[in-house]
């Protein structure tokens, strides 16, 4: 009976496992293999795919553009995750409160989630276009700026920061915020009301209630959310590729875009796989760190 039960469970899982294996695990392993061989489309017909060891990794780490994309990726991820979680915490509190029109506000906050990143990129490219940007018109009308801001093309930098990087990050946050808000809102609604009542009896202020009741209660959910957002940020592609293509002057280039360019523009699938391998190691590190902490918690 137990054996039949297991068999049934495996049968039910099989379609999902097969799809994950065929479309997720196999390409990942194949890509890893490509990172250890010469996989140059322009030479493959003549020379095949000889094993080259770590040469591809040495090559990408020897490329200053790649190093810059690693820095950009980390910066972009940290900024986007921090802003998403920060605004997410704030907005979820607003959405959790009781007031007339709450349903409308909740729907409005979720709207960016319904916009695919590619479409969001196209919309924001227009909104942030130097000469046609309504944002520029608005800022000039308000007297905050005198000439157009070059949101996506200004190559001035302040340390590792640039206006295009901040603009791209803002679009990413706009697009990803509803996901965080819904995540946190669901967790907020599961916090027992009695904890807040007890805090009130103890004379806790609004901030103290947030710091000592809300935040500790949200910790498990925030850990999952942070992990997902960091993994998503490290592998982010569409917004950067569509809005700036990594420019100006590589300021918004991130690892996934670099990898795409190596493969589909320069036909170097080996270097692209090595760059993807680095992304895999970074996301794997984050995942292992998270799983380890979860494992410790359950012991």
């Amino acid at each position: 009976m137990t054996r039949q039960k297991y068999l049934f469970c495996y049968m039910m899982l099989a379609p999902a496992l097969i799809i994950t294996g065929a479309l997720g695990i196999y390409p990942m392993i194949y890509s890893l293999w490509m990172s250890f061989v010469e996989f140059d489309l322009l030479r493959i017909a003549q020379f095949g795919t000889p094993f080259v060891g770590l040469d591809n990794y040495v090559a990408v780490f020897g490329d200053p553009r790649f190093i810059q994309t690693v820095v950009n990726t980390i910066l972009f991820t940290v900024l986007a995750v921090a802003a998403t979680v920060g605004f997410g915490l704030l907005l979820s509190q607003v959405l959790n409160a009781t007031y007339p029109g709450r349903a409308v506000v909740r729907m409005m906050v979720c709207v960016p989630w319904f916009v695919p990143p590619a479409v969001a990129s196209a919309i924001w490219m227009w909104l942030l276009h130097t000469d046609r940007s309504p944002v520029n018109f608005l800022l000039q009308d308000m007297g905050l700026i005198t000439s157009n801001l070059r949101f996506l093309t200004d190559s001035s930098t302040w340390g590792p920061f640039s206006l295009p990087m901040l603009s791209i990050t803002a679009v990413r946050v706009w697009n990803g915020l509803p996901f965080a808000v819904i995540f946190i809102l669901a967790a907020l609604q599961s916090i027992p009301r009695s904890l807040y009542e007890a805090a009130e009896v103890d004379g806790a202020t609004l901030f103290q209630k947030f710091w000592y009741v809300t935040l500790p209660s949200l910790r498990p959910i925030l850990a999952i959310l942070l992990t997902l957002l960091v993994i998503g940020g490290l592998g982010s592609f569409e917004i950067n590729y569509i809005m700036t293509g990594g420019g100006p002057q590589n300021l918004t280039n991130i690892m996934a875009v670099y990898s795409y360019q190596q493969a589909f523009s320069f036909y170097r699938f080996d270097l692209a796989s090595a760059a993807s391998g680095v992304i895999l190691i970074m996301t794997g590190f984050v995942s292992v760190f998270y799983l380890r902490s979860q494992f410790k918690r359950t012991l």
Binding site: L42, R65, Q249, F266
Partner: peptide, 24 residues
């Protein structure tokens, strides 16, 4: 290799040459 040389992406030989001189 021509389409890789002339690719409209940063990192391509002609892109870098033109962008860095004309714009940069």
């Amino acid at each position: 290799v021509w389409t890789a040389l002339a690719s409209p992406e940063p990192g391509a030989v002609i892109y870098d040459l033109v962008y860095n001189t004309v714009i940069g």
